[in-house]
Design a protein around this nucleic acid. Sequence first.
DNA 1: CTTGACTCGGTACCTGCCTACGGAGCGTAC
DNA 2: GTACGCTCCGTAGGCAGGTACCGAGTCAAG
Lengths: 141, 141
Amino acid sequence: MNGLRTSELARQGGINLESIRFYEKQGLLPKPPRTASGYRMFTPDAVRRVRFIKRAQELGFSLKEIKELLALLLAPDTTCADVRVRAEEKLRGIEQKIADLRRMTQTLAQLTAACPGRGATGDCPILGSLDQANPRSGSGS
Amino acid sequence: MNGLRTSELARQGGINLESIRFYEKQGLLPKPPRTASGYRMFTPDAVRRVRFIKRAQELGFSLKEIKELLALLLAPDTTCADVRVRAEEKLRGIEQKIADLRRMTQTLAQLTAACPGRGATGDCPILGSLDQANPRSGSGS
DNA sequence: CTTGACTCGGTACCTGCCTACGGAGCGTAC
DNA sequence: GTACGCTCCGTAGGCAGGTACCGAGTCAAG
């Protein structure tokens, strides 16, 4: 038999062996045929699949979303548009996250800039800001 | 007694009642004195503490880090510099996350731009890219 | 005194993504 | 034929940050 064993798929896919079984359980990898004694026999196709999953993860897709992408991929009547919609949604989601994080960095940057870097904590604008109920991250009205 | 009860602290702090007990267990809130029958009696100070936690969370600090911040805040010999170091570390961490996310959006944006939005999935650059082992997120060499 | 709202504590559950363990069976090299 | 390593499976654990449930006790009003 020339199918890949689990560990070989894990190696070629660059993930942990246990993750293979985990993905299979989650429905991300198709249940492969087995040898008479129950060993999984993966085709090289499975390596592509694993890499697909990894790449999609790197693009910010959750396993759940990747599962949907894979379902789309396999559905005969899926169009490119279906896929693009997912990508665009994800894009917007990530942009939203970036905006959130940027607000955080702005506030943090302002606070660290205002912090003299010495003296007691009582004068620290960072702690001071955190202690305010509703700080405007500067001198409020 | 004029101490706040748990639910009142939760309300004023803007968090769930159960979270109060959770934070206490995690060491984020000091164990408050109790009435004879075991009810927690919080001082108004606890409201500040809860809001501190919430604000720090909004700035991207994990509960673990917030606990450290609070410890700093309470240590008598903490200087402003100690606090600023934390804030700067967090700032760098968040900037790193932003950079990661931006790479994702760039790739996704390129892919969706390249996607015609119609036709079969076989032609879809998005799925195609995910299927590649080592895509350069554009037209490779 | 009873009712109803509140609180207590512990524990279990949740999402997301794995990772580890243990005991059994399989396969191959020597 | 046996020793070693790989594989099987189910289950448990772990991080983060809570949320939910339960039975029992408490408090204040009527």
